[in-house]
Structure formats: structure tokens, C-alpha cells
């Protein structure tokens, strides 16, 4: 199999590699009776799995998940939306930041089943077709990243920071972006990008 772009083939490899063990793991869970999910008033259950309806970037997805699956794992491993990153996986770094009903949250500390009924927006849902969101464009223009791993979380957090009205000054931006760590240290350019984007966002 040849692929014209190295990026696409890597992504394809990752999605193929990730899905196989997951299916096996899920089956073992059901057969072993480990997932002791019960019938509830609020979420449908099927065997050891929970039926979860997730609305992500305007699309509705129906998934059968172990209740332990976090939102970030549902996005990445089950929906193939790998833009959202796992950093610390303990709510300390902000790489997994998404919007839930318009509000920025940490998808690594959110159970997927608890996100049912909410509108989730990830980095893949921010652009308008081929036109980047003003915050994405500003990050590019201001070189507001180095390795780029924290960038999707930074951008989702930055959009929310502006919408909340917490981008009034450099100091306020720093305070209200403190939940997103950048170990390359691109903070100076991130602040510049947010200052730039906030005017274009009409804030």
C-alpha cells in the first residue's frame, strides 16, 4: 500500500493499531463479567457496556463503551478524533481540553458516559470548512507553539478564555490560561496570539 503523504499513513497506522486491542479488551470485559454496569434511569446499559450517545462537532455518535472510558479516550480511540491529546491524564496539563456545552473542560477527567447529552467541540470542529478559526490562524501567525502537542488544548482553552471575557490584559490571559501547560515554553507567543485573535473574534 502506498500513500502520498507520510502524515496520512502514520494516522492510518495509528487508528488500525489502536482499534484491534480495544475490541479484544472490550470482549474480555463482557465475558469476564468485569464491567458491572447496572440498568439505570439515566443511561442505557447492555451487558458490561454502556450505550452512550455522544454529540461531537455537530455529529451524533452511538457507542458501546465500558463505563471506565474517559471522554478523551472515546474521542481518540473510538471516534478517531486524535486532535485532542492525552498529556498527564490527571487533569494537570490541559492538553485534553475540549468544550462541553460551550464551556472548556478536561476530557481526561470526564467519563464518556457522563458526557451524554452534551455538545462536545474538539479542535477538529473549530474551523469553518477550510477557513481556520481566528484563534487557530493567530496561533499559526504568531508561532505560538514548538512541538505542537499542547496546541489543540491551548487553542480550545484560548477560545473559551476570550468568550468568558478573561482576555482583558496580558496578566489576565496568563491567569486564565494557567490550566494549559506548554513544556516548550511558547507562552509569550500564545499570549500574543490570544491578544490578536480576541479582536478578530469580536471580543
Amino acid at each position: 500500500m502506498t500513500n502520498p503523504t507520510p502524515g496520512a499513513s502514520r494516522r492510518e497506522f495509528l487508528s488500525t493499531a489502536a482499534s484491534a486491542p480495544l475490541v479484544a479488551g472490550a470482549a474480555a470485559g463482557v465475558l469476564g463479567g468485569e464491567a458491572r454496569a447496572q440498568t439505570t434511569t439515566g443511561a442505557a446499559m447492555a451487558g458490561g457496556q454502556v450505550l452512550v450517545t455522544l454529540k461531537v462537532n455537530g455529529q451524533t455518535h452511538r457507542l458501546s463503551l465500558d463505563p471506565r472510558v474517559t471522554l478523551v479516550d472515546a474521542l481518540r480511540e473510538h471516534l478517531g478524533l486524535t486532535g485532542t491529546k492525552v498529556g498527564c491524564n490527571h487533569g494537570q496539563c490541559g492538553a485534553c481540553t475540549v468544550h462541553k456545552d460551550g464551556v472548556r473542560v478536561l476530557s481526561c477527567l470526564t467519563l464518556a458516559v457522563a458526557a451524554e447529552g452534551s455538545e462536545i467541540t474538539t479542535i477538529e470542529g473549530l474551523a469553518d470548512g477550510d477557513e481556520l478559526h481566528p484563534m487557530q490562524a493567530a496561533f499559526v501567525q504568531h508561532d505560538a507553539y514548538q512541538c505542537g502537542y499542547c496546541t489543540p488544548g491551548q487553542i480550545l482553552s484560548a477560545v473559551a478564555c476570550v468568550k468568558e471575557g478573561h482576555a482583558g490584559s496580558d496578566a489576565e490571559i496568563r491567569e486564565y490560561m494557567s490550566g494549559n501547560l506548554c513544556r516548550c515554553g511558547a507562552y509569550v507567543n500564545i499570549v500574543a496570539a490570544i491578544n490578536d485573535a480576541k479582536t478578530k473574534m469580536g471580543a
Partner: peptide, 15 residues
């Protein structure tokens, strides 16, 4: 995480 049962009640009484 160890497996757990998950329940999402609709009222405080049910909770």
C-alpha cells in the same frame, strides 16, 4: 481504574 457500576439517577430521591 477498576471496573465499577454506573448509575445516573434523574432525581435526588432516586440518587
Amino acid at each position: 481504574m477498576l471496573p465499577f457500576a454506573y448509575e445516573k439517577p434523574k432525581s435526588l430521591d432516586d440518587a
